[in-house]
Structures are given as structure tokens and as C-alpha cells.
Computed example of a mutant assay.
Amino acid sequence: MTDWPPGGSDPLLDALQSDHLPDTGHADMAGLLRDRRLGRVALVSSFGAESAALLHFVTRILPGVPVLFLDTGRHFPETLAYRDALAARLGLNLVILRPDPALIGAEDADGRLHARDPNMCCTLRKTFPLADALAGFDTWISGRKRYQATTRAALPAIERDGAHLKVNPLAFWSEADVAACFDRHALPRHPLVGRGYASIGCAPCTRPVRPDEDPRAGRWADTPDKTECGIHLGPDGRFARARPRPDSPH
């Protein structure tokens, strides 16, 4: 899976879609997640507003699946407490990823990189650590859903993400489906949800949303052109590290 795309076709992706996702009305997500052709699988979670639904759904199907959490060093304290509570409640195999402290020290010494260059801040704190961790896996699972934003309206349930497969098990769920999952399984809500946070990322770049806004409007609200943190690549995407600066040992 390191030399994709081979001739512009993807027989593995086509086969998985044919077997488990012939159309949106016949999506066998459990069968897809258990398919051995996915290889080594990890789940990536932000422990945000709706994360408990994904974590419960997937770990009932794949007990013990590694759950990767990107500890950027800029999370709300409530998110870290929620992460620990959910990990204990659901018996998660939690793996905490952190950015390179030397790189952060060199590039964000004053802690204001998020204001100067939010894309670079996400790259250092999220993309690079996740790229390193995913080198040990063939497939990763995300919690993205179509209803979250117009930019996700055509989100597929399974896709290519660089050399990896990526599964979005809740892609076709509605907001009501997520709420029903929380209610059915008595899942705790993130403590910031009650304060108007519909999508929760790092504290400096997240605000509450208004009732007329889409759930992700509070993310990078001061940077209108930025809608994603950068960990979600396109089919021919690659995680590419910038070359070290001449005066940097890293």
C-alpha cells in the first residue's frame, strides 16, 4: 500500500466498496470494519463534541483497537478530562500522540503560532505526529460526518488518504442518529457542548457557534479560508515534512 495509485485504479478500494457499501441504503459498516483486507487498523479521535458515538460504535465491533489522540498541548482542560473519563468508561486502548517538543520550541517559542500561521500550527502539532503514528497502520478510522459542514457533504464511507485507507463509519449518520446513540447508550456529553461548542478543537482556535451556523463554524472562525486541520488528505496526498532550516538541528 505504499505505491498508490497504481495506474490510476484502486482494486482494493473498489472491492471493499462493492462488498460492503453497494449504496448508501445498504452499508454494512460492521462487516467493513472487520474485513481483514483493511490490514492494521487504528481509530483517530479528538474526544470532541460527538466523539463518544464513534468510540462506542467502533470499539463494540473492534474491541482493543488502538485509539490515537493528538495531544497538541493546546486543548481545553475539559477535553483532557473528558478523554480520560471516556477511556475509562469504554475501556479504550488509548495511545496519546504529542508533537516534537524541539520543533515546537523552535517554531512556536512564544505560543502564538496559531495566530500567525494556523496552518503551520496544525501541521506541527497534528499532521506530523499523526503521520509518524500512522506509519504503523494500513487503515485509520475517522469520525467525520456529511452533515457537519458543506465541505463534507459528499464524504464517502471509505476512501484513500495517501497510502492509507480511511473509513468514516458515521459518514451517513444524521445529527439525530448521533443524539440517539448518546441517549441509547447513556454516553456522557463533552462538558463544553452545553456552553455552545458544537465542534471542539484546540482552545485558541475554537469558539461557540450560533444556532444558525453549521457545527464547524466555530473552528478557526478568524481564518475563513481554513476549514480543516490538515490531517485529512486527498487520494493522492502525502504527509510531507518541510526540510529543516539551516540553523536548526531538527
Rank of each mutant, 00 (worst) to 15 (best):
Ala85Asp: 12
Glu78Tyr: 03
Ala30Pro: 08
Leu92Asp: 13
Ser18Leu: 12
Thr79Lys: 02
Leu55Ser: 00
Glu78Thr: 05
Phe69Asn: 13
Gly25Lys: 10
Trp4Glu: 04
Leu32Glu: 11
Ala27Pro: 09
Arg60Asp: 04
Leu38Gly: 06
Ile61Ser: 06
Ser45Pro: 05
Ala106Gly: 09
Leu97Ala: 08
Asp10Ala: 09
Arg36His: 14
Pro77Asp: 11
Pro101Cys: 08
Asp108Ser: 06
Val58Pro: 13
Val95Ala: 01
Phe47Pro: 09
Asp19His: 11
Tyr82Phe: 14
Glu107Cys: 06
His26Lys: 05
Leu54Pro: 08
Pro77Arg: 11
Ile104Cys: 14
Asn93Lys: 11
Pro63Ile: 00
Ala27Lys: 02
Asn93Gly: 01
Asp100Arg: 00
Trp4Leu: 15
Val67Lys: 05
Leu90Glu: 07
Val95Cys: 09
Phe76Gly: 07
Ala109Asp: 14
Leu92Tyr: 11
Glu107Trp: 10
Phe76Asp: 12
Gly7Ala: 13
Ala109Asn: 08
Pro77Trp: 12
Leu54Asp: 06
Leu12Trp: 04
Ala81Val: 11
Thr59Phe: 00
Ala106Cys: 02
Val95Pro: 00
Pro66Tyr: 01
Gly105Leu: 03
Glu107Tyr: 13
Thr59Val: 06
Arg37Asp: 07
Arg34Ser: 09
Glu78Arg: 02
Ala87Cys: 10
Arg36Val: 10
Ser51Glu: 13
Ile104Met: 14
Leu32Gly: 11
Ala27Trp: 14
Leu32Thr: 12
Gly48Arg: 08
Ala49Met: 03
Leu80Glu: 08
Glu50Ser: 09
Arg40Glu: 06
Asp35Ala: 01
Pro11Tyr: 04
Leu94His: 01
His56Glu: 15
His75Lys: 00
Ala81His: 10
Ala88Ile: 03
Arg74Thr: 12
Pro66Cys: 03
Gly25Thr: 13
Arg83Cys: 00
Phe57Ser: 15
Arg36Ser: 14
Arg74Leu: 15
Pro99Ser: 05
Ser45Ala: 15
Leu38Asp: 08
Gly25Arg: 14
Ser45Gly: 04
Gly8Asn: 04
Pro77Ala: 03
Val95Trp: 00
Thr59Glu: 00
Ala27Arg: 08
Arg98Lys: 14
Leu86Gln: 08
Phe69Met: 11
Leu43Gln: 15
Leu43Ala: 13
Gly39Thr: 01
Leu33Thr: 11
Ala102Gln: 11
Arg98Gly: 03
Arg60Val: 00
His26Val: 00
Gly8Glu: 10
Ala27Glu: 15
Leu90Cys: 06
Ala52His: 01
Gly39Lys: 02
Leu33Ala: 08
His75Val: 00
Gly31Asp: 09
Pro6Phe: 07
Ile96Phe: 01
Tyr82His: 13
